[in-house]
Design a protein around this nucleic acid. Structure first.
Length: 875
RNA sequence: GGGAGCAUAGCUCAGUUGGGAGAGCACGUGCUUUACACGCAUGGGGUCGGGGGUUCGAGUCCCUCUGCUCCCACCA
């Protein structure tokens, strides 16, 4: 039995029951014989979700990202694919650890060191158990049609096995090594970071000129001088040639350091002398290696000066800088300071300045891994949408440096490397060892570090499907199809998935990367916690409904992948649309009465043909736009059709036809057919409301149990009545013209008069007089075939002409019209038409146009000229 | 220092092979027309950032200038 539909659409009453129904019915699970009516097994279509932070909360970026994925998945599901949208969450190493540490400090006043490693990790797991399902529930509120039974987590047993397999494989191939390098250390998070996790920011700093004996060096980080082991000059710099090989005394530290020559030095910058701090600057590190200089680490990972810093030991880097500068000044070593703009690296997690520092870390050798990942994109096996992001990707991967994957935190995948305390043997192992493989000693210690979060994320498309096992899911759904994400993580994630997929599975993990822009606030600023300008998508769902939010976000997702400004109030428009659809559906369902099934009638009225024609075009357009990832255009066309064509015109036309016993039955059929088809097309964008309405259809008017798994519409060629349907547009033009003139002349709706229509389509207007009367607000219509009585009528002071595309409609003037104003208006119209006519005539007498322009265009313009001439004659 | 993107109606933005300048919001006017005032109808409003070029014709292609945004990069 059809349910009763309330007067206004209430998303809060619809969304949850509908979602529960979908979940219960198993609609989100892959359906092996999806493509109904087609032979054989359905082709698979797979998307893996970009896993949100397990302890995170849904923000608008997630809402956008997942709406786009859900639209694609729902479309493909209806189109008969065996779809899998695989959900999951990320353990998000540093971010989660920071969050739990904060909690620990606030609640118990303890640090993770107070608890110890095992106890702390247990706390993080507790935290994950408490909050891990939060974001999943939030995604459900959006209507995300993920197969929740396959929910994965990057620290699950299976995924952890994949991480180990990859690490050990790479280790065995010699693609992972441990070494001392200058890496970026965040002293707040006290861990190493990869290059991609450092954000560069231009800052105004100071350039300190410091006298080292006979030389003056310039630096932006004066405290690093504590670790200087040399001064470098350019080998061909005549100013300093005589000093090369000599030494200077390092101020404050009173250390004798050599002057070396190295081509790295830019003679034109500063004084042409560079202080060399091997352990705290990547360039200096290289110089030191070339000249066999001693390495002196003067800061630890927490940002404190070490004992190597002499009397400054124990100070923070900030205090050390102040103290060093003060002492230099007091000692007369500080020549000058000047303002200097330079780039400072900041930790992408805590935004503190990172400290380049020598330390032992694990690295992945990138050169060999990158090459096939470059080829995959260059050879088109993986394409980016929009295409321009390929350039960004290629530039990065072609120049990528080795990847620092070790982190000095506790939450994450522990590096599977053990060192034997007895013989010093180092082993990378898939399974925890009981004893040393070399000497059988049991005195083994595991490397204390964990892996970069992105190390496990890089494996996501195949680790979630069961790799390294040879599972049915992996065989069926890998490689996946489309990856949907923002362009901000091309390097962090997308590129790493591509080279990891190729390396470990031999296949590109997806064929298409659909990138969208980032969301900004109404002023165009990035949304961030610190600015407090974030918009809570759940509040928007609450206020406007999930479908309205989805439609809004879809309409923003342009093909260019540019950034998008979010103005929450704009959702109102889409809520209004949902309400419109709701009420139109109420009308249709109420009108069709006991219509039990629909069969395409043999003959249709012109308005019926018209809406069917529009509908076929819509099916074609929406399908094409979705296939080309033009979600905004698809959504736009759907709204235009439903609101303008269907509601504002067809329903009004249908109301007239429903009063006519001869047309009523077919009109009911077409009302039901058009609405049902539109619901199917709209479903990927607005799943809840479309399903709710669809469930209210009489069973004979729908196919299957639920819209979510209903068939995607295909254009029906027999319903393309383009030519005849066009006549409906003539009627509509005439109606619009009359309404416009009535409005302009302020004729109240209550004043109805008999109209005269002069047209070459006399038959059309005669047979549709009822429709014309109803829509134009007339009491009667007289139709005059063109030419038959045009004289006199036009000059009749009691009537006024309204020119529509193929008809001239005369409005009786007796109705309170200011004749003077009317005359002026006619003069104005005549002048405008004359001007247009002259311009067009000039264009058509230009041989450049008539000879070179396509014939179609020339013909069209000639017809326009003829029409204008006719119009002028009338005026 | 390289690279990319954006500049279209008061606001936010569409505009897919060059030929009609568009939408939503805001604004004006008129409507309680029994699906909907979260509505209906009808209007006003733009030198498509400036300049140059290709073309019969350019918001759309090329060059240049200006303004804004972002990314990459080891010059102290």
């Amino acid at each position: 039995m059809p349910k009763e539909l309330g007067k206004a659409y209430q998303p809060s009453e619809t969304e949850q029951p509908i979602y529960a129904m979908w979940e219960k019915s198993g609609a989100f699970k892959p359906c092996p014989n999806g493509k109904r009516g087609k032979a054989g097994k359905a082709p698979p279509f797979t998307i893996v979700i970009p896993p949100p932070n397990v302890t995170g909360q849904l923000h608008l970026g997630h809402a956008l990202d997942n709406t786009l994925q859900d639209v694609l998945i729902r479309y493909k599901r209806m189109d008969g694919y065996e779809t899998l949208w695989l959900p999951g969450t990320d353990h998000a190493g540093i971010a989660t650890q920071i969050k739990v540490e904060e909690e620990l400090r606030e609640a118990e006043g303890k640090t993770r060191f107070d608890l110890g490693r095992d106890e702390f990790i247990k706390r993080v797991w507790d935290w994950k158990e408490t909050y891990g399902s939060r974001i999943v529930e939030q995604l459900k509120k959006l209507g995300a049609s993920c197969d929740w039974d396959r929910l994965r987590f990057t620290m699950d047993e299976g995924l952890s096995r994949a991480v180990r397999e990859v690490f050990v494989t790479l280790y065995e191939k010699g693609l992972i090594y441990r070494g001392s390098r200058i890496t970026n250390i965040c002293v707040t998070c006290h861990t190493a970071l990869s290059d991609t996790e450092v954000e560069h920011e231009e800052q105004e700093g100071k350039l300190y000129h410091i006298r080292y004996g006979d030389l003056t060096v310039a630096t932006t980080r004066p405290e690093t001088m504590l670790g200087d082991t040399a001064v470098a000059v350019h080998p061909e710099d005549e100013r300093y040639a005589h000093l090369i090989g000599k030494t200077v005394i390092l101020p404050l530290m009173e250390r004798e350091i050599p002057i070396v020559a190295d081509e790295y030095v830019d003679r034109a910058f500063g004084t042409g002398c560079v202080k060399i701090t091997p352990c705290h600057d990547p360039n200096d590190y290289d110089v030191a290696k070339r000249h066999n200089l001693p390495e002196l680490l003067i800061m630890d990972q927490k940002g404190f000066i070490t004992e190597n810093g002499g009397k400054y030991a124990g100070l923070t880097r900030e205090d050390a800088r102040k103290a060093v500068v003060a002492d230099l000044e007091a000692g007369g070593y500080l020549v000058k300071t000047e303002p200097h703009i330079h780039n400072v690296g900041a930790c992408s997690r805590c935004h503190c300045a990172v400290e380049p520092m020598a330390s032992e870390q694990w690295f992945v050798t990138m050169k060999e891994l990158a090459a096939p990942a470059v080829a995959a994109v260059k050879e088109g096996r993986t394409v980016f949408v929009p295409e321009r992001f390929e350039k960004l990707y290629l530039h990065w991967i072609e120049n990528v440096r080795d990847w620092c994957v070790s982190r000095q935190i506790w939450w994450g995948h522990r590096i599977p490397v053990w060192t034997c305390g007895a013989c010093g043997h180092v082993m990378a192992l898939r399974d925890d060892p009981a004893s040393c493989a070399h000497c059988r000693s049991t005195a083994l210690t595991q490397d204390p570090d964990v892996l970069d979060t992105w190390f496990s994320s890089a494996l996501w498309p195949f680790s979630t499907l069961g790799w390294p096992g040879d599972t049915e899911d992996l065989r069926r759904f890998y490689p996946t199809d489309v990856l949907v994400t923002g362009y901000d993580i091309i390097y962090l994630w997308v590129a790493r998935m591509i080279f990891s997929g190729i390396e470990h599975t031999g296949r590109e993990p997806f064929h298409t990367v659909y990138m969208h822009g980032l969301l900004r606030d109404a002023q165009g600023r990035k949304m961030s916690k610190s600015l407090g300008n974030g918009v809570d998508p759940l509040e928007m769902v609450e206020q406007y409904g999930a479908d309205a939010l989805r439609l809004y976000l879809s309409s923003l997702a342009t093909l260019q992948g540019g950034d998008m400004r979010i103005v929450p109030e704009r959702c109102e428009h889409f809520r209004n649309f949902c309400n419109k659809l709701w009420n139109a559906s109420r009308f249709v369902l109420g009108s069709i009465g006991d219509t039990a099934s629909w069969t395409l009638p043999d003959s249709l009225t012109l308005p019926d043909m018209w809406i069917c024609t529009k509908l076929q075009a819509l099916v074609y357009d929406v399908t094409g736009h979705l296939d080309r990832y033009e979600l905004n255009l698809a959504a736009q066309k759907l709204l235009d059709f439903i609101w303008d064509d269907f509601c504002d015109w067809y329903i009004e036309l249908a109301k007239v036809q429903l009063r006519n016993p001869e047309a009523a039955d077919t009109t009911k059929q077409i009302l039901a057919y058009a609405l049902e088809t539109a619901l199917r097309l709209l479903h990927p964008f607005a799943p809840h409301i479309t399903e709710e309405i669809w469930q209210s259809f009489p069973e004979g008017l729908r196919e299957g149990a639920a819209l979510v798994t209903a068939r995607w519409p295909e254009p029906e060629d027999r319903l393309r009545f383009t030519h005849e349907a066009g006549q409906t547009e003539l009627l509509m033009d005439a109606v619009r013209a009359v309404r416009s003139r009535r409005n302009e002349m302020k004729v109240p709706p209550s004043k109805k008069a008999a109209w005269t229509v002069e047209t070459p389509y006399a038959e059309l207007f005669e047979s549709h007089a009822e429709i014309f009367r109803a829509l134009a607000g007339a009491s009667g219509v007289t139709v005059i075939p063109v030419g038959a009585g045009s004289d006199g009528l036009c000059e009749d002071a009691q009537t006024v002409a309204v020119v529509a595309s193929a008809a001239t409609v005369y409005l009786p003037l007796a109705e309170l019209i200011d004749l003077e104003a009317e005359k002026a208006r006619l003069d104005k119209a005549r002048a405008a038409a004359q001007k247009e006519y002259d311009a067009l005539e000039a264009k058509l007498s230009n041989p450049g146009f008539t000879q070179k322009a396509p014939e179609k265009i020339v013909t069209a313009e000639r017809e326009r000229l003829a029409a204008l001439r006719e119009k002028l004659e009338r005026l």
